[in-house]
Write a protein that binds this DNA or RNA. Structure first.
Lengths: 125, 125
DNA sequence: CGGTATCCCATGCGATACTG
DNA sequence: CAGTATCGCATGGGATACCG
């Protein structure tokens, strides 16, 4: 009996474990985008709002709170007037964002193939 | 001017492009799980339903239709009685599933750290 | 076996307005 | 600037029943 099973996907797939919640947080509509936006360094609230196209302030704030609770990012306040707040990936977050960057990069590279597949599918039927 | 920008994430982040739709399909609640479940080879409908914990037949069927339209997986019917239907990753799908496996693997490895961060966060405030 | 159709509720999420 | 509060709708998604 091994303490680490050969296939780490098995546990996540088969149901109700904490890992599923983490997956849902990260792959939530705005989670991936916010995390990837932060990959190159800290950003302030309004930079994130402007950088992640289409996100509302409400969803940005909500997403940031969830990801912060999960230990994936940090919030820091500079005591200027008015205070400026910035968000940074934690070490944990920097690790987790790597596969996400891979995903985004793949999508950017292959989006045209997917579009072609969609067109073909819609035309064929 | 380069035909390929340095940062492929930029386009996806900044808004309304086809890539965003692809991202939403893949990172939909069940999309990741279905794709990863198929990483080791074809599975039949009921194998997927049983393998992906918590998914309903409706959502499985719906997710499969979307991913099929995107050209990420194929459906094939063996003309037995009753017919047996199985789903396979296409070459495109096999490529795209790689970062997803990376993500799942990372989550499985780090879930405990996230749980600890949550506990700490809830306790601190 | 491998789905689709219908019903219905929970929540995700945007819009707007307001606050420290 | 960096949010929170409230409202309201659209969509996601489960339960159940039915079909080829």
């Amino acid at each position: 009996m091994t303490s680490r099973p050969a296939d780490p996907a098995a546990e996540v797939l088969t149901g109700d474990c904490p890992a599923r919640e983490v997956l849902d947080h990260i792959t939530s509509r705005w989670g991936v985008l916010v995390l990837v936006a932060l990959k190159d360094g800290p950003l302030r609230f309004h930079q994130l709002r402007d950088g992640v196209g289409g996100i509302s302030e409400k969803m940005l704030s909500q997403t940031l709170r969830v990801l912060r609770r999960d230990g994936l990012l940090d919030r820091s306040v500079e005591p200027t007037t008015p205070p400026s707040v910035s968000y940074t990936l934690t070490p944990l977050g920097r690790e987790g964002v790597l596969p996400l960057c891979g995903l985004i990069e793949w999508i950017a590279r292959r989006a045209d193939d997917v579009l072609a597949a969609q067109a073909h599918h819609d035309a064929t039927r």
